[in-house]
Nucleic acid binder design. Structure first.
Length: 561
RNA sequence: UGGGAUGUAGCCAAGUUGGUAAGGCACCAGACUUUGACUCUGGCAUUUCGUAGGUUCGAGUCCUGCCAUCCCAGCCA
């Protein structure tokens, strides 16, 4: 299923959409993605973005982008820009339909006045603590506020004074008059406007009162002619209020809200608050640190939009609480990269190998296709010479059972080059093998089977020592060591589960052609994994590669149990 | 102990009017292999669909009870 970007999403929402079209409730499918600009988008948002944009698209509809900026104390333009960049990166387009909830502040205010005139809203004088006390508990109904039945005239006057800044922050709120005895707290006369003197990133100091999400959101949806307002499960309880607002204001053909389960991933945190803490505490280098599950972090790590979209399509959409295995996301990534990434030879942990019977000073250039699965080959020149580097892990003096890489007297194939046989080992004073001497078989040029039909089990990668270039490589692992980062012992928290090895810097030996890569481009370091030329810290003088994901490694699994 | 939701394999998830449990990931076995990768083949819920009953010739699908988990008492979204 991977990489079938045209695959339709079939889920309960699609079913609802089809029924709505069949019944005539809606003519055009119109959704919206409504991020709050108070943090960076992460993989969980990617699910919502895909659902919002894709459900509309596959039904011939459109999707708006709308920033939910009703709380100026938390929101900022920095986030607006980052969010747009991330959505575009995923490949979605909102054309000219970029909106802000703040675009509708005037209308929200006018509708609030209407609500007051209709006796459906009132100004509350009780303090926040008092309001809380009056709200009741899970098992007890709330009590009506003594201010609940003020006259319409008084409410109108007070609300205008709220707007005009005649009260202090928090001194009054505007409440919807619904039902203090409702078992659903959201209907116990919810606040719909609060006084808040904060500079708004869009409206500046024009307002000192701001509408609450529950009030502004349905209005924004209705004004934009949204047909299906899709959100996550925690808003299920808010739906009756969503409907109440639209009904009270009197919108015809109001939008409907539907909820789906948010994405949880093993080894991953998807709480904006906690991600912010990682950034502020310097646990990571920023929102775009390659270990972050943010879209900007994943992008730097080397994830592709295709992999993420395939993933979202594969996990489906349902209402059941779920935690998806990170392995599925990685599967989608590998599936995509396997098809598209160029193959380069890079030795991460070099071990020097001297080919004794190869002529001193001789040099050969192998012309090889490094894009084996693409339609059009991409060829590079790969130099070979007497001294090469191989991976330390590709040699074992005392080989494990079924180890078929290089070992004493053993023969292996150097990819695209020659068969070599180990003849001699050189160790340092501590006993560590620091050099291996081999002989090569000239009849295996290109790595081909010799005339005698001799086969070899192991095939390893290599880099010519005299041609090798040093490159910085950052080996990334999961940020957390436990599938559930939040699972901690008494008094502990997710910080206790940080992986001390989430980032390892090394200097690797690479073939010269690796330097031809573009910033942000993916490639495979043959047999080692997929890597990406870092788009931020890398320079021409000092290229830096990030390990996106390792290759699946059956041997490691066998060897380490 | 109020309300809202959800419970199908280790993890996601199909399962449209009841008719005899899709698919993917992971895992296991094997084939292939100039990446122990990829690819391919086979296996992987059969006293079973949270559970206990009931209706029915027949129930994951209908009815009743129970259990578990998640969300809700922001002037956050």
């Amino acid at each position: 299923m991977c990489n079938e970007n045209e695959a339709r999403m079939t889920n309960f929402i699609q079913e609802i959409i089809e029924n709505d079209i069949a019944s005539g409730r809606v003519k055009e499918i119109h959704t919206r993605f409504p991020p709050e600009p108070n943090g960076y988008l992460h993989i969980g948002h990617a699910k919502a973005i895909c659902i919002d944009f894709l459900m509309a698209k596959q039904n011939g509809g459109i999707c708006n982008l709308r920033f939910d900026d009703t709380n100026p104390s938390k929101e900022d333009t920095e986030y607006v820009d980052a969010i747009m960049e991330d959505i575009r990166w995923l490949g979605f387009d909102w054309d000219d339909r970029m909106f802000y909830a703040s675009n509708y502040f005037d209308k929200c205010y006018a509708f609030a006045v209407k609500l007051i005139k209709d006796g459906k809203a009132y100004v509350e004088d009780l303090s926040a603590e008092e309001v809380r006390a009056y709200r009741g508990t899970l098992t007890e109904p709330g009590k009506d506020s003594p201010y609940r039945n003020r006259s319409i005239a008084e409410n109108l006057d007070l609300f205008e004074k709220m707007k005009d800044g005649q009260f202090a922050d928090g001194q009054k709120i505007l409440r919807a008059k619904i039902d203090m005895a409702s078992p659903n707290f959201n209907l116990r006369d919810p606040a719909i406007y609060r006084i808040l003197r904060a500079n708004h990133h869009r409206t500046g100091d024009k307002w000192c009162i701001y509408p609450m999400y529950d009030y502004a959101h349905p209005i924004g949806d209705a004004l934009e002619d949204i047909s299906h307002s899709l959100c996550t499960l925690e808003f299920e309880d808010h739906r009756p209020l969503y409907d109440w607002v639209l009904e009270a204001i009197g919108f015809e053909n109001p939008p409907h809200q539907y909820e789906f389960a948010r994405l949880n991933l093993t080894y991953t945190l998807t709480s904006k608050r906690k991600l912010l803490e990682l950034v502020e505490n310097g646990v990571v280098s920023g929102w775009d640190d390659p270990r972050m599950p943010t879209l900007s972090g994943l992008r730097r790590l080397g994830y592709t939009p295709t992999a993420i979209i395939d993933f979202v399509k594969m996990i489906g959409v349902s209402k059941a609480y779920s935690v998806v295995d990170l392995a599925l996301l990685e599967h989608c990534l590998r599936d995509e990269l396997n098809k598209t990434a160029k193959r380069h030879m890079v030795v991460l942990e070099p071990l020097k190998v001297v080919i004794d019977n190869y002529p001193d000073g001789q040099e050969e250039i192998f012309d090889v296709n490094i894009s084996p699965l693409e339609d059009k080959p991409v060829n590079i020149k790969r130099p070979f010479s007497k001294v090469i580097y191989i991976e330390k892990s590709d040699f074992m003096e005392n080989p494990a059972h079924k180890y078929f890489r290089l070992k004493p007297q053993g023969e292996v194939r150097l990819i695209n080059a020659y068969f070599i046989t180990c003849q001699e080992i050189i160790k340092d004073e501590t006993g560590e093998v620091i050099e291996v001497h081999c002989t090569y078989d000239p009849q295996t040029r290109g790595g081909s089977t010799p005339p005698d039909g001799r086969k070899v089990k192991g095939t390893i990668h290599w880099v010519s020592a005299q041609h090798a270039v040093d490159v910085d490589v950052r080996l990334y692992e999961n940020l957390f060591t436990t599938p559930d980062p939040n699972a901690a012992s008494e008094g502990g928290d997710y910080m206790d589960n940080l992986n001390p090895n989430s980032l390892t810097h090394i200097i690797a030996k690479a073939e010269p052609a690796l330097l031809d890569m573009q910033a942000g481009e993916n490639c495979q370091f043959v047999r080692m994994g997929y890597f990406c030329l870092d788009a931020k810290d890398s320079t021409v003088e000092k290229p830096i590669f990030n390990r996106t994901v390792t290759l699946k490694d059956t041997w490691k699994k066998i060897n380490e149990g």
